[in-house]
Design a binder for these strands. Structure first.
Lengths: 236, 236
DNA sequence: ATGCCTATCTGGTATATACCAAGAGTCTGG
DNA sequence: CCAGACTCTTGGTATATACCAGATAGGCAT
């Protein structure tokens, strides 16, 4: 079973990764260098790297190289704490880039919220970083009636905070959907990884206290950048 | 970008997979056959297959072959509906195998539940199938004081159902943790896949209404066999 | 200083080939 | 009829090698 050489390789690399100084930084040596050092081919070496990637110990940036991964981010998709807040709370450095805002119909959002397919939405697409690594690409579609001048604001912060603060909305009913996926071309590019990289998709559908549709969003995370945690009281 | 041949291959195979009759069944032709049919090498072909595997369209059974995957199972880890019930509710065929039961201390369970490390637990390990495909390997550790004669029962059904029915427990406080992982040797073998296959780990810690520790469990799913859904009311 | 270009580094994709080990079915001798 | 051995098929692992394309950094020209 574990007599496969690439698994030994995986083990040895895993050990090296324990020691922060082993590679003199966050970056791993080039594949060709590692392959030579371990007296094997790049093909086999890459198998070992892929294994460690699956374990969340290392990650790659498209054609730039391999890097040791920081511990995953704890994330509770049922709470509406802002990204910036919970990233900071874990001693990490958050950053947000707004890629696009517009107002258009969007079929999946309409379907999820039970609205006609030609219903327009305020749409925000953004990319979020932890410690300067892009880990999340997300799109949000907000029902304009709930938040009329939404697009005039600033979106590097918490959208839910604004919905509560500026429009007094309570995000009462939510439905979540988590699914293991492979990143599409666009998300992959935004996150600086190769298309087809493993990701985790989170979709949320939100209604207010009066059961009016408020928002639909899709998040695409690098699959090992986060650990989902949920705390529940008495849902029985 | 998409001028990579293996991506074209992926597309063509994806199309074929739409048509249930394309391969005359749930099983794909052997890699060597497919490679020849598409005039490429097994190496490249396997890249395309791995891609489709990541997308959840096909899966493999260790050294047996590739199979087209059924749609993922919807699963709400916050509800305590039994596995059998919700699998049946989705028109699929559930099955459960009990692999092991014993009573022993278990450090992770003790830590999660806030008990001393030498605290013994009733331990159940089982494997669960959907439509005869093993998709889940799970271990449960129950605090013996909460459910004294637990191990004398039958465990192919819902454990939580028993905890409620036989001991009147309410599972009031739960904490969930979801993490994308690679399956270890034991889980992989139980699920009939190669070690290192992508998986999804679900850990649950449960306390009763009086905040007494009740149970800790670890689930290891084939990563694309399920779609996690959660519905929440008013957690704000 | 600035902007462009180019050489070079990196990972990404691909071919061709070989052998190993577990699964599955078959054949055979009791 | 059945257990056990054998064989064939399948995916799993590995070597060796080549070329492509994006990322990067250094140098040159403006």
């Amino acid at each position: 079973m574990s007599d496969a050489y690439y698994l030994h390789l995986t083990d040895r690399l895993r050990e090296l990764l324990q020691d922060p100084a082993a590679f003199g930084g966050d970056r791993l040596p080039a594949e060709r260098v590692l392959a030579e050092r371990f007296r094997t081919t790049r093909v086999t070496l890459r198998q070992a790297l892929a294994q460690l990637e699956g374990e969340g110990r290392i990650h790659r940036s498209n054609r730039r190289g391999w890097f040791v991964s920081p511990p995953p981010l704890d994330y509770d998709p049922t709470r509406d704490a802002g990204f910036n807040d919970y990233v900071k709370a874990q001693g990490r450095q958050p950053r947000t880039e707004v890629l696009l805002t517009d107002t258009r119909p969007h079929r999946p959002a309409a379907e999820a919220l039970g609205l006609p397919v030609d219903q327009p939405f305020h749409h925000i697409r953004r990319r979020r970083f932890v410690d300067d690594r892009a880990v999340l690409s997300e799109s949000l579609w907000v029902v304009p009636e709930r938040a009329p001048q939404l697009l005039e604001g600033d979106f590097t912060g918490s959208l839910w905070g604004q919905l509560r603060g500026r429009w007094g909305l309570t995000l009462a009913h939510r439905s979540l959907r988590l699914y293991s996926e492979t990143l599409g071309a666009q998300e992959a590019e935004e996150l600086g990884v190769a298309a087809g990289t493993a990701g985790l998709s989170v979709r949320r559908t939100i209604f207010d206290a009066r059961r009016r549709p408020v928002e639909y969003d899709e998040e695409h995370w690098l699959h090992n950048a986060l650990c989902i945690t949920v705390d529940l009281e008495n849902t029985a």
